[in-house]
Simulated scan of single mutants.
Amino acid sequence: MDAGLSIGQVAERTGLSVHALRFYEREGLLADAVRRESNGRRVYTEDDVDWLDMCIKFRSSGMPLDTIRKYTELVRQGSGNEQDRLALLRSHQDHVTAQIQELTECLRVITHKVGVYEQHLAEGTAECLWVAPSTAKASEAS
């Protein structure tokens, strides 16, 4: 049998802290129960690392812990609930797609403003740039 990975090794490979790994286990976010050595130390498998990597991507994309937990429970139940898993993942996919569209619009505005500032700085006309109303009033008062 494979010797497995220690919690420290898994923390290093996933970028999660030891505390976070224990939290994921306690919250039922791992697909399989973590094996224990006779001394009680956790022993992880490559499958555990792969699962954690997926959970990290889910969390980084804004998936709530409750949703990850629900997905994990569905996986643990085995075959027969693939439609439920698909629906859960499609819903999150839609959420992420909307986030990307919103961020793309934000990036468009920022890119435009960067271009405006670059142009004014290159032309020496930076003083023509918009000034916040509160700043303008303060300047008028002095």
Rank of each mutant, 00 (worst) to 15 (best):
S91T: 07
W130F: 15
D84T: 11
T135Q: 10
F23Q: 00
Q119A: 13
D84W: 03
N39S: 13
T104K: 14
T125V: 12
F23V: 06
A138Y: 09
Y24R: 02
L86Y: 04
K70D: 10
R69K: 15
Q99R: 01
G78S: 02
W51Q: 01
R26K: 14
F58S: 01
W130N: 10
Q101D: 10
V75Y: 13
H112V: 06
Y44V: 00
R69S: 14
E25D: 15
N39L: 05
C128D: 14
T125K: 12
D66T: 15
T67R: 05
R59L: 06
H92S: 05
S139K: 13
E123I: 07
H92W: 10
R35F: 04
E37R: 15
G40S: 10
S142F: 14
E102S: 00
C55Q: 05
L5S: 00
T97L: 00
L88F: 06
L89I: 09
T72R: 06
Q119Y: 11
Y117M: 06
T14A: 07
K57W: 07
V34R: 07
S61F: 13
Q77I: 04
K57R: 12
T111S: 15
E140V: 14
Y44M: 00
A33R: 15
K137V: 12
L52I: 15
V49L: 06
R76N: 00
M63C: 03
L52W: 02
R90G: 00
Q119E: 13
G115Y: 06
C106Y: 12
V109E: 14
R35E: 09
A98W: 02
G28V: 09
T45D: 00
H19S: 08
L129G: 04
D2I: 03
A31R: 11
T67A: 12
Q77R: 15
G15S: 03
G15F: 10
Y117C: 01
L89C: 08
E102Y: 04
V10K: 02
D66K: 14
E105D: 15
R69P: 09
S6G: 11
S139V: 04
M54K: 08
S91I: 01
E105Q: 15
I7H: 06
A141Y: 01
E73Y: 01
M63D: 00
H95W: 02
E82T: 12
H95T: 08
G62H: 04
A31F: 14
L107A: 11
T104A: 09
G78H: 00
K113C: 01
D94H: 11
S139C: 06
A3S: 08
T67W: 06
E118R: 14
L65K: 03
H112K: 14
A98M: 07
D53G: 09
L107K: 15
R42G: 07
E73I: 10
D66C: 06
H92C: 03
Q99D: 00
K57F: 12
D84P: 05
T111R: 13
A33H: 15
T135D: 06
E27F: 06
T45R: 04
L103E: 03
V75F: 12
R90K: 09
Q77V: 00
M63G: 03
H120F: 04
G40M: 11
C106V: 10
H120D: 04
G124L: 12
S6V: 10
S61N: 07
E27M: 13
T72I: 15
D47M: 04
F58E: 02
